[in-house]
Write a protein that binds this DNA or RNA. Structure first.
Lengths: 336, 336
DNA sequence: TAAAGTCATGTTATCGATAACATATTTATT
DNA sequence: AATAAATATGTTATCGATAACATGACTTTA
């Protein structure tokens, strides 16, 4: 297989060897009925002899459709990482391949417009930028099987998502209900929906309870960033008895920093995380957190996409996973 | 975009509108030189007017090569998850797409044989089954740009991998050097190289030091499995003062179980993990572990693949990352 | 000024499959 | 036995691009 690899046998080669026309070979390959047993046998033998395997590219060009679904994402590094393997596993179950198409917000609309040219069966969209115009997206892909992962509730696209606003509200309310009055916040990128919504809910919930906003700081959802911003937050010396931290990864490192600084969790500071990450239950203390399983979201979205593919009558809807607070040992009433 | 989405404009449509032949349009699209400025202008205007974008499928069929690399993997759930996003990010940098092709060991050889039909530019192979015959793989893909991720050292394929045997040896030797004599083992799946090699190195190292093998048990590298097998191991009541645990995820939950059982790490049991997972440094105690970064491996492999693509003269080699033991606080000499 | 070369553009074939329609056979029906 | 229907098979066009070669107009060179 040099730069230009050798060609494999085609249906024409098989046809010649079997002494039939190429279209008969095509019929055998696709298991069509109108082929006599003897002919079929001869063709199969020839296929076997030549090690024939169909060329998916040629087939796709003619049929305008391939056994491929694509994941269009503006966020290769964030949750989309966790999603990819789940989606490819689901796709494998339906005998489909997954094509990953990273893009930018700017290029996104053109990427979507070119969907017919890529001749994929369906598209999963993961684009978390706050500035994205879902109305435009909606216009471009009308009636095409596209499922959005984790976007705005009002996106108008078939989607599977979480109600992060309500989830974050529950998280903050939990701290308030425990008696905390000075509640700080550690957030993720504010250009991402995940970052923005959790912060808005935090602010709104405090306000609804007639509480002032506590100290707030922003990182990038990752554990290393949690370490950095937590140190900065401590350096500010603003008082807080509880923290709502926008990801378990950040909570993990933030707690580590607090422990090093002599602060105990939950005795001195209660912590609510977000994600119910795989490690959350094994920490000490086990972390109180909001369920937000990117893998589950991806699986449901992929399954929904295949529902749409197999039955176009499937109702188009938004599937919103209910928020769930997992109470563990990182929260408790504030010390008197 | 109904089941069969509407066709987009083709070069023929553009040619008609611009009043030139389709081949001239093709020349403009591909930035060829021999087109007069006025003609080029007219074509560009027509392209713009029709919202033309090239059809990659048709182009691929003719040129027998696409802007796509593929990841062929027999392991959708394990490390390949972490690798996918890294690879797609690298690919994006070269203006390539990533196609994920999950397969089974049995189907693998045929999947590789059909590479010419898929017309991809290059292939990354992640196949960790111990029974895989790399000689066969080698024969199939001779001279084709394929880079293997994390396979056997003697695979004979261009690859990027870790020397897990030596790494595991270092880990176990570290415990022995600290004075431990009863060293247990928690492993991953023994049908995977990652599982098998770490266990073999554990056994060999003990033997070389004239020590008997300690209690051993096997899970699946994941945190939930670590919890299960650790409970089972404790129930056996076999003595050990140290554990070599094949993944940080399993170490995380295993430590949690030990703590619940009243065992302290490292006072009662020293633990060496494996992977230097993102959370390892933030645990209490911070985990002593072996560096084994799947993301780094994937990045290097993808970059190597693009080296091969851009310059076929690039020497074909195995790139083996050196093992590195990260000493943190989960190991110490055994209590007297 | 004729021959040769360059440039802009076009015509036809091709990649490997399926679609649409056509044509012999064979079998069933009256 | 004649006609209709079903079955098996083949011919040609097509998907949307590039490859290979051809052609005419203009420039350069001897």
């Amino acid at each position: 297989m040099a730069p230009n690899p050798p060609k494999l046998a085609t249906i024409y080669d098989v046809a010649d060897l079997a002494g039939v026309s190429h279209i008969t070979v095509s019929r055998v390959v696709n298991g069509k009925q109108n082929v006599s047993p003897e002919t079929r046998e001869r063709v199969l033998k020839a296929m076997n002899e030549l090690g024939y395997s169909p060329n998916p590219i040629a087939k796709t060009l003619q049929t305008r459709r391939s056994q491929v679904i694509e994941l269009v994402t503006t966020d290769v590094w964030g949750s989309s990482a966790a999603m990819q393997s789940v989606i490819s596993a689901v796709a494998q179950g339906f005998d489909f391949q997954l094509s990953i198409l990273p893009t930018t917000v700017d290029a996104l609309y053109n990427v979507l417009k070119a969907i017919p040219n890529r001749m994929v069966a369906g598209t999963l969209l993961y684009a978390q930028d706050v500035d994205l115009n879902y109305g435009t997206v909606q216009q471009i892909v009308q009636n095409y099987p596209l499922v959005q992962l984790g976007g705005r509730l009002q996106s108008g696209l078939p989607s599977v998502t979480y109600d992060q606003y309500q989830a974050s509200t529950l998280a903050v309310q939990h701290l308030i209900d425990l008696g905390h009055r000075e509640i700080g916040f550690i957030g993720g990128q504010q250009r991402l929906l995940d970052g923005r919504i959790r912060y808005e809910a935090y602010l709104d919930t405090l306000q609804r309870n007639h509480l002032k906003a506590g100290p707030s700081i922003f990182g990038d959802f990752g554990a290393p960033s949690g370490e950095v911003v937590m140190k900065e937050l401590l350096a500010r010396q603003q008082p807080f008895t509880a923290l709502f931290i926008s990801s378990d990864s950040m909570a993990l490192s933030a707690i580590h920093v607090m422990r090093q600084a002599g602060l105990r969790v939950p005795e001195d500071v209660s912590v609510v995380g977000y994600d119910d990450d795989i490690f959350a239950s094994f920490l000490s203390p086990p972390l109180t957190t909001m369920v937000n399983n990117a893998g589950l979201l991806a699986r449901l979205a992929a399954e929904y996409l295949f529902e749409l593919l197999q039955n176009p009558q499937t109702p188009r809807m938004q599937r919103i996973l209910l928020p769930e607070l997992i109470l563990r040992q990182s929260t408790r009433p504030p010390q008197p």
